[in-house]
Structure formats: C-alpha cells, structure tokens
Design a protein around this nucleic acid. Sequence first.
DNA 1: CACATACAATATGTATACATACTATTCATT
DNA 2: AATGAATAGTATGTATACATATTGTATGTG
Lengths: 155, 155
Amino acid sequence: MYTYYSFGAFLMEIENILGYLLNTSARLIKHDMEKQLSDFKITTAQWAVLKLLDSWGELTQTEIADKLKSDKATIGSIVTRLRKKDLIVKRLSIKDSRANMICMTEQSKIMVKQIEKLARRTSLNALVGFNKEEKDRLIQALQRIIHNLDEAGNQ
Amino acid sequence: MYTYYSFGAFLMEIENILGYLLNTSARLIKHDMEKQLSDFKITTAQWAVLKLLDSWGELTQTEIADKLKSDKATIGSIVTRLRKKDLIVKRLSIKDSRANMICMTEQSKIMVKQIEKLARRTSLNALVGFNKEEKDRLIQALQRIIHNLDEAGNQ
DNA sequence: CACATACAATATGTATACATACTATTCATT
DNA sequence: AATGAATAGTATGTATACATATTGTATGTG
C-alpha cells in the first residue's frame, strides 16, 4: 500500500510541499496527455488555446492570455505555431487596428472534437481510485487555489 | 461569491479540465514563490534540487532526476546553474567514474533554511480559506495522482 | 578476456513561461 | 484637435522541460 504524508507534518520535505506537488502532478499529467496527442502534432498548451476558442469563438491574443491566466508573449508564440499548422487564422480587428482576432479553421474545429476523448482518458488515468466526491473536491480545491493566487497576483 | 464547477459537468470547458487546473495552479503558485525567492537569485526548480540534497545528502544527477520525477537533461542544466552560483559542488564519484556526486555548499545550506519560511507563506497564500481537513485531502489527492501517473509512465 | 548491454552525463533542438523593452494605436482629458 | 496614458502585439533573453543522440564507463555473460 502506498503511504501518504500529511501537509501539517513537522518535517517539511520537498515531496510534501504544495508547490512541488502541484508542479509535479501538472508535469506528469501534461506528459500523459501529450503522449496521447502525439498523432495530432499538437501540444497541450496549443490545445488549450484551441479549446478556449471553441468555447468562446474568436478572441484577441490578450483575451486568450487573460482567460488562460497566461501572458501575451507566451500566447503570441503559441498562436504563431498554430498558424503555421493552419489551425488558426489571424484577422485584423475592425474595431481596433492594434488587435488581431484569432479564429479557428475547419481543420482545428474537427480536431478539437476528436481530442475531447483523449483529455477525458488522461483525467481518468490520473484519478484512478478516486470516487466521485474525491474528484469533485479536488477540482474545487484547484479552482479555489487559482482564485486565491489570481486575486493576489492581479493587485 | 465565487462559483465552482463540478468535474462531472456535461460541458467540459477548458477551465474545468483537470490537466488545465493542475497546470494553471502550478504556474500561479510557482510565480508566487519566485516572487518571494527573488532576493535569493534562485528559481523554484533550483530550490527543489537544493531542498532534496538537504534531505538526502549528496546524490548523483540521475538520482536527483528520479526523486524529483524529472529527467537527466533538465537536472543537468539546473546543476550547471547552481554550480555557477557556488550553491553546489560536483565531485567525481569514487565508486562510479561516470557519475558525479552533487554536494551542497555552506552557502546553500544556510540559504535552504531561510527559504523554508517563504515556502510556507506561499502555501498559505494558495490555501486561503481551506481548513486543515481540506488541506490534507488536497495534498493526499495530489500524491495519489503523482503515484498513478508515475506508475503508468514507468512501464 | 571480449563483447553486448546498460547506464551517467552531455549536447542539441523545440516548446513553453515569463520578464522587460519597444512600436503602433487608441483613449481620456483638456 | 492635441497630448499623455493605456493597450495590443512583437522582440529579446533566460530558465525550465523534455525528446533524441552521443560519449565514456560499467557490468554481466560466455
């Protein structure tokens, strides 16, 4: 049986520190997902942008950065790579000539639907042995952490 | 009041997908921690290596990579940077002349103790509003995820 | 001992992630 | 209308993160 460690433990080793645990689980799940995505020649970061566009329709790069809690520079380079693969199109905004509207292509609309299943499978791999209540509690805890840190960061 | 979303929701938007939530919370907590670490001219990845050495004593780069669930190339470059800052020393292993033992310096031993408090503060920032039970459940959930994915990845 | 295999570390290349600086454009206010 | 502040996006540089290939060393087996 696998042994768990408490957060309140006196001995605070790296393996028990929240930031390390979040970072490690995030890297491992990303790795699992990218293994599944390899056929699509796309990364998780690129997929997240497409998934967001699929929900919201066309967005500017700054809007994408805000919604994904990322930054303009990072989204800029992801958009460049998506465009090279013809998965998005940039259209100069009519309202604001500084801004580009990022739009999905037919190809990426189809791709996003196909990837949906893979994302669910990766979540299941990560959550083996979790019951519904445990899953829900985890998702809510992560949303609370993001809320806490996002608030603090935007002061 | 902030609204939470359930993992079992029919509409699976990017904001509710486990991998995205882990990745985002990991990035935000890393960002918070690195803000606090700025005086030490060190990153969280570099700190994790020092923290591990502080617990285990001298280790090879491969051992560090295994324990942090990272890889040799990544640890190699972190070790190079730590060495430039005189925070670690590389000693050729007596047993195995392919390997280097990575050892802390006096400077990094002191530094690690000072950083301990900052790590706790960052965890508190992230976990505002969590009670002890919620914190413990989260830590255990993350350790289970790492266990699940690490098992799967090492097949 | 010889040899195939495994392993430690390095080298190279791509993709985030993010700080900082810069350009072009827009907006607010006078 | 003029102008100073804010904003959208790009450019540059550093640091992971990781795949893949290479080099040198160790080890197990015949």
